[in-house]
Simulated scan of single mutants.
Amino acid sequence: MSKQQIRDIIDRRLAQDGLVDSGITGVQLFRVTESVRCTPAVYEPSLIAIVSGAKEAILDGRSHVYDSERYMACSMSMPVEAGTPMASPENPLLGVQISLDTKTMTELVLETERAAGPIRSPKAGPLPQGIALANWDDFFTDALLRLVQLVEDPGDTAVLGEGRLREVYYALLKGEAGESARRAFGVGNEIARSIEYLSAHLDDTVTIDDMAAQAGMSRAVFHRKFKQATTMSPIQFVKSMRLNSAAMNIASGMSVNEAAFEVGYVSTSQFSREFKRAYGQSPRQWGTTHRPAVLA
């Protein structure tokens, strides 16, 4: 019932396709009725909960489909291909997109660790991937409903928004995607920290040694743990982040030269070669055949 109530609220708020602010920082509601095939995108740390329809994200060739049965938690910036291939006027995609604030998430991870006992280093073993899917549970569903209900009253939003958003964050940490989030925002977040550094310096020459230094690891150890967390080698990841960001900028109207320089390329010819190798079109062709998606 709670899920249907969330859908009804989004239906009332969004008569047309779009991504709209809820009035709560970092929380947006969306509606999509157009089928859009997967195209390059960059997922920032976020949570996406869908109450109608389905969405697809492709990471390193592997498809992740999430819908009203499973929500998506992205705990680190990740280069993906994303789309809404099943959306239609008869089957609209409706949901909530929530940015994960680093400061608040870190505070919550530490608080939950303290409540459970002394903080311990994470157990050895493979790192969870940066993208995790989790089944909706009652605690998460109820927390999300209480958050979304606020959008119908600006006064309630202003007074209660921050607290109810924090409750949704806590529900995420308690759910099936919690381990991935805890590793990104709490103890053992070295890989997430290196990705955050890269995301803030896409226009600079960032080497693998720079990223390993941010993580406090040797190059060999960093390479192994990075691939566990992202499924990609650091070199693949850096290139994908740069090209995906450039593709999104070009689709939004940025010139090819500007897009290349924006993500750290000093040679537009090299950028064009690598872009065409990745996407099968030159950057200029891409700009004429793609437009920005309502929802990345």
Rank of each mutant, 00 (worst) to 15 (best):
E190I: 06
P122Q: 15
L147G: 11
P128T: 00
L202D: 11
V80A: 06
A132T: 03
V168E: 05
E107Y: 08
W136H: 15
L198E: 14
E176Q: 10
D142C: 13
L133G: 08
V80Q: 07
T207W: 02
A192W: 00
E111P: 08
F140A: 09
E90C: 07
G163F: 04
A132R: 06
S180T: 07
P85Y: 00
V96P: 12
G155L: 12
L144N: 13
F139Q: 10
R146N: 14
G117V: 02
E196D: 14
D209M: 05
V80M: 03
T102H: 15
P122G: 09
P92H: 01
E176P: 02
M76I: 07
T106W: 08
I131E: 00
L127G: 07
G95P: 11
A124H: 10
D137N: 00
E176D: 06
P118Q: 14
L100Q: 06
P79I: 06
N135G: 07
H201T: 11
F140L: 15
P118T: 10
M105V: 07
L147E: 05
S199E: 14
E81P: 09
G178C: 14
A115V: 08
M76C: 04
E176V: 03
V187L: 11
V159N: 06
V206R: 00
L145P: 01
D156P: 09
L172Y: 08
D142H: 08
G163C: 04
E162N: 03
P122D: 01
